[in-house]
Amino acid sequence: MKVTINIDCTPEEARTFLGLPDVQPMQTALMQQMQDQLSANMKAMDPETMMKTWLPVGLQGIEQFQKMMWSQMSSAMGGTPTKDTKK
């Protein structure tokens, strides 16, 4: 035996019938909060701000790497270390 029941109702009517809470106000508030947070994060993604944040650290790392390489090469070749490599 096979029984089929078709119920034609909106999601709001089904929630009310089943006694489920209306979460629409909470969803609206959360979406607004997410939108505000996304807008604030997009301001931080400005290319100029990103370059100011990343560039000094990147250049310092390159300079340190160069100093280390020069000191290793000069000590391997039997040379005396330069002023920058003495520490």
Rank of each mutant, 00 (worst) to 15 (best):
M68V: 06
Q37Y: 13
G61Y: 08
M42Y: 05
T16W: 08
Q72G: 05
A44C: 08
L18S: 04
M51Q: 11
L55Y: 07
Q32L: 13
Q72E: 05
R15F: 03
Q33A: 14
M77Q: 08
E63R: 07
A14F: 15
M51H: 06
I7M: 03
L55D: 05
Q24R: 12
T53Y: 07
M77R: 07
M50R: 10
T28W: 02
P81A: 11
A44D: 10
T28N: 07
V3T: 11
K83F: 13
A44W: 06
G78K: 03
K87V: 09
I62C: 03
E48Y: 13
I7C: 01
Q35E: 15
T82L: 09
L55C: 04
G58M: 14
A44L: 13
P11V: 02
R15P: 00
E63H: 04
M77T: 10
Q72D: 05
M34N: 11
Q66N: 14
D84S: 08
K52C: 01
I7H: 00
N6M: 10
M69W: 03
M26V: 11
D46I: 01
L30Q: 13
M73F: 14
T4I: 13
K67L: 14
A40H: 09
M50A: 10
L18W: 03
K87M: 07
D46A: 08
T85V: 06
A14D: 02
D8L: 15
K87N: 12
M26D: 09
T85A: 05
P47N: 02
K86L: 10
I7Q: 01
P81L: 11
S39P: 00
A29R: 07
P56Y: 01
P81T: 07
K67C: 04
L20Y: 07
L18A: 13
T4Y: 04
R15S: 03
T82M: 07
Q24C: 05
E12N: 15
Q33D: 06
P56N: 02
A44N: 12
Q32W: 05
S75W: 03
M45C: 07
M77F: 05
P56H: 02
T49N: 09
M69Q: 14
F65V: 06
K67V: 09
Q33S: 13
T82A: 09
L20R: 03
T28E: 15
N6Y: 07
A29C: 04
W70I: 08
S71L: 02
N41Q: 15
C9T: 14
F65S: 13
W70V: 10
V23R: 10
N41P: 02
I5H: 01
P81C: 05
